[in-house]
Computed example of a mutant assay.
Amino acid sequence: MSTQAAKGQAFHALHERDHPFIIPNPWDTGTARLLAYLGYEALATTSAGYPQATSSVSTCRRRCPLCSGPHF
């Protein structure tokens, strides 16, 4: 799944199932990796969590990979 369109279709499909779609919102890299390891299919993002955890306000403007899974 490499294109943005394919990622969007996969994310949309998560909302169309018969059972609830639960999407956690990790605040740091460790939590994101743990949640991905536990099998969550997608992770929400927070605009301030990572910068606050690292004391880096400028980090808000950069994209930081949190885990090796797909990013929606």
Results as ranks from 00 to 15, higher is better:
1 M>P: 03
4 Q>Y: 11
5 A>G: 07
5 A>I: 12
5 A>L: 12
6 A>E: 12
6 A>W: 10
7 K>H: 13
8 G>V: 15
9 Q>F: 11
9 Q>R: 15
10 A>K: 10
10 A>D: 06
11 F>E: 00
11 F>I: 00
12 H>Y: 14
13 A>Q: 09
14 L>T: 02
14 L>Y: 09
14 L>Q: 01
15 H>E: 02
17 R>N: 08
18 D>T: 12
21 F>T: 00
22 I>M: 07
22 I>D: 00
22 I>Q: 03
23 I>D: 01
24 P>L: 00
26 P>N: 01
26 P>W: 05
27 W>F: 09
28 D>G: 08
28 D>K: 08
29 T>H: 05
30 G>V: 08
30 G>C: 10
31 T>H: 06
31 T>I: 08
32 A>N: 03
32 A>P: 02
33 R>Y: 03
34 L>M: 05
35 L>H: 00
35 L>N: 00
36 A>G: 02
36 A>H: 06
37 Y>D: 01
39 G>C: 02
39 G>Y: 04
42 A>I: 04
42 A>Y: 05
43 L>C: 03
44 A>L: 11
44 A>S: 13
44 A>V: 05
44 A>R: 09
45 T>W: 15
45 T>G: 10
46 T>I: 03
46 T>C: 02
46 T>G: 07
48 A>M: 09
50 Y>A: 04
50 Y>K: 01
50 Y>G: 02
51 P>M: 01
51 P>W: 07
51 P>I: 03
51 P>A: 00
53 A>N: 10
54 T>G: 07
54 T>L: 14
55 S>I: 07
56 S>Q: 15
57 V>S: 06
58 S>G: 08
58 S>E: 11
59 T>E: 13
59 T>G: 11
60 C>I: 05
61 R>Q: 10
63 R>H: 15
63 R>K: 14
63 R>Y: 15
63 R>F: 15
64 C>D: 07
64 C>R: 10
66 L>K: 03
66 L>W: 10
67 C>A: 11
67 C>M: 06
67 C>D: 08
68 S>C: 09
69 G>M: 05
69 G>C: 06
69 G>H: 10
69 G>V: 04
70 P>V: 05
70 P>F: 06
71 H>V: 11
72 F>A: 06
